[in-house]
């Protein structure tokens, strides 16, 4: 049974690659969505609301199937999309919808008078967001965003349904080859668990240092 550990860990880099890349893209997209939700740009706001509603309102698995199996039928240029690419796009869109709401709440939480002070000294909107509002919002949102990252890592396991041999896909193959289903799945569960525990530990440290930020 322990022999499975190194085999499955060999697929960990792909799992982490998908999670980290999706997280990075989702952070950028979510920040843009959140800033739009705060600024409420006419027309665009409606589209953003619809986007967030759709990606929060439908299961991730459905979204992944839609991208990988569905879309290429109506958009032929997507035929060459790999399972990894589809998974990264799906995870990015899905999680950005959730993260946008947390980031928006954190932005709105920044004391109104500081927005006015930034305006009063003559900052442009971009300067105000970049230098005053977002740094403070980031501090508030960070622990929640780590939660989403943890969720993201676990959700990469769905990529195996798109034919991607990441950790879950590899486990499935090992199990089917040896008929040792219990051993295979308990080992992969323990690996995910260990990763998440490590991240939770980092999250506590992060929260601790964030609570001390801006107070000395």
């Amino acid at each position: 049974m322990l022999g499975l550990v190194p085999i499955l860990l060999g697929y960990l880099p792909l799992t982490l690659f998908m999670a980290v890349l999706s997280m990075a893209c989702a952070l950028v997209l979510a920040s843009l969505l959140a800033m739009e939700r705060v600024a409420r740009i006419p027309v665009l706001d409606g589209i953003v609301v619809l986007f967030i509603s759709f990606f929060r309102g439908t299961p991730l698995l459905v979204q992944l199937f839609l991208f990988y199996y569905g879309l290429p039928q109506v958009m032929p240029f997507l035929t060459n999309m790999t399972g990894v690419q589809a998974a990264i796009i799906g995870l990015t869109l899905h999680f950005s919808a959730y993260m946008a709401e947390s980031i928006r709440a954190a932005i709105i939480g920044v004391d109104r008078s500081q927005w006015e002070a930034a305006e009063a000294v003559g900052m442009t909107r971009t300067q105000m967001m970049g230098r005053i509002v977002l740094p403070q919002a980031a501090r508030v949102a960070a622990p929640t965003l780590v939660n989403y990252f943890i969720d993201m890592i676990k959700s990469t396991s769905l990529a195996f349904t798109l034919g991607v041999t990441e950790m879950m896909g590899a486990t499935q193959k090992e199990a089917a080859g040896s008929f040792l289903y219990f051993e295979a799945f308990i080992v992969v569960a323990l690996i995910y668990w260990a990763i998440v525990e490590a991240l939770s530990f980092a999250q506590k440290r992060l929260e601790f240092s964030l609570n001390r930020a801006f107070t000395r």
């Binding site: 004391d111 008078s113 500081q114 006015e116 002070a117 930034a118 009063a120 000294v121 003559g122 005053i132 740094p135 403070q136 501090r139 930020a213 801006f214």
Partner: peptide, 15 residues
């Protein structure tokens, strides 16, 4: 940019 404002509640940048 031609004026400066002092607020009742200070409104310092907390970060």
């Amino acid at each position: 940019r031609r004026t400066a404002f002092v607020f009742q509640n200070y409104a310092l940048f907390a970060n």
